[in-house]
Design a protein around this nucleic acid. Structure first.
Lengths: 166, 166
DNA sequence: ACATTAAGTTCTATTTTAGAACTGTCAATA
DNA sequence: TATTGACAGTTCTAAAATAGAACTTAATGT
């Protein structure tokens, strides 16, 4: 697999992974949602090397996840803020946080708690069906090829057959 | 940052990223949810090098996301199947798919469609508040330090102040 | 004149990954 | 009996990515 063409794969997971699929990028996005916006603040709070930080920010800007906004003119300085496309990553970050809360906490408990401004309560995120509102699980979902699908893979066909037989 | 201690960071994002935060792992998990279970099937469908595949599978087993189940005795052969901890990654994968569907599709449309067995309809996943059921957005959520929090970071405090001032 | 803040860039050493070939077991086939 | 093929890895070298530190540029404050 060549990572530079991953974003053209006929798969929405692969295309998203092309944008956010590495450790530093996910941690940078966490900081964005915690309202970190400046180069040195990202660097200080993450301990990422400046080289990689510059690289990742550039990439996120190129993909339209972040936008550079000038906050000072002399010398020119920019803040990195989330675009709508970036804000739309929120469910990904929240589901990552939630899985960590459930499966990776130590004895001290959760590092962070979330309060819903709308209803005022502490909450967990729940993923539901847009049509009926019921919570989703892997087993309650059927996958179909869509209009942008590649020709069906023999490997998946074989695996599906085995699953039916065994 | 040292990746080998990332899972002990006082942050649920960091801890989850320690498990799933690289390209290949996310793509391997996609295949798991598409019912791929065997070494050579993962290898063929992803084009990952056998070396890395072995490494990533081992790691996912170590973290309790996958379990090795024998399916044949001579020679001993195993399948890798998702544990409950692994199945619980479903919202992460689905939110990744959904973001790709919205922001990364080309003219041909979505590679895959999802049907909810419970209600029978094609759907999109929606993340809602566990308490009031309303859809969540970054702006409708307040973050509080929890019992497992680290001492509050000066970087975040400074950034929050700037956000209030500016 | 000198130190500081901010946002990078450049450098070398180390680690990870890619790509291909190789190993070991067993079953089925010629 | 010898050969082929399926399967699940391991081992090897070359290429790429990352870590860690120092350097650059531009302006401000003392």
């Amino acid at each position: 697999m060549k990572w530079d063409t991953l974003e053209e794969e006929p798969c929405s997971v692969a295309r998203t992974v092309a944008v956010i699929g590495d450790r530093w990028t996910l941690l940078i996005l966490r900081e964005c949602f915690l309202r970190i916006r400046r180069f040195d603040d990202f660097q200080a709070s993450l301990g990422i090397t400046r080289h990689l930080l510059a690289d990742r920010l550039k990439k996120l800007v190129r993909f339209g996840v972040l936008r550079k906004i000038p906050y000072q003119d002399a010398p020119k300085r920019y803040e990195y803020i989330l675009t709508q496309k970036g804000l739309d990553l929120y469910p990904i970050i929240m589901s990552i946080v939630h899985w960590g809360n459930i499966h990776m906490v130590d004895a001290r408990g959760r590092p962070m708690l979330h309060q819903h401004k709308t209803c005022g309560k502490m909450f967990d995120p729940v993923m539901v069906c847009s049509e009926c509102g019921e919570p989703l699980s892997a087993k309650s979902v059927h996958v179909h090829p869509g209009p942008g699908a590649r020709k069906s893979s023999p490997v998946h066909a074989k695996a599906a057959e085995r699953a039916k037989a065994g």
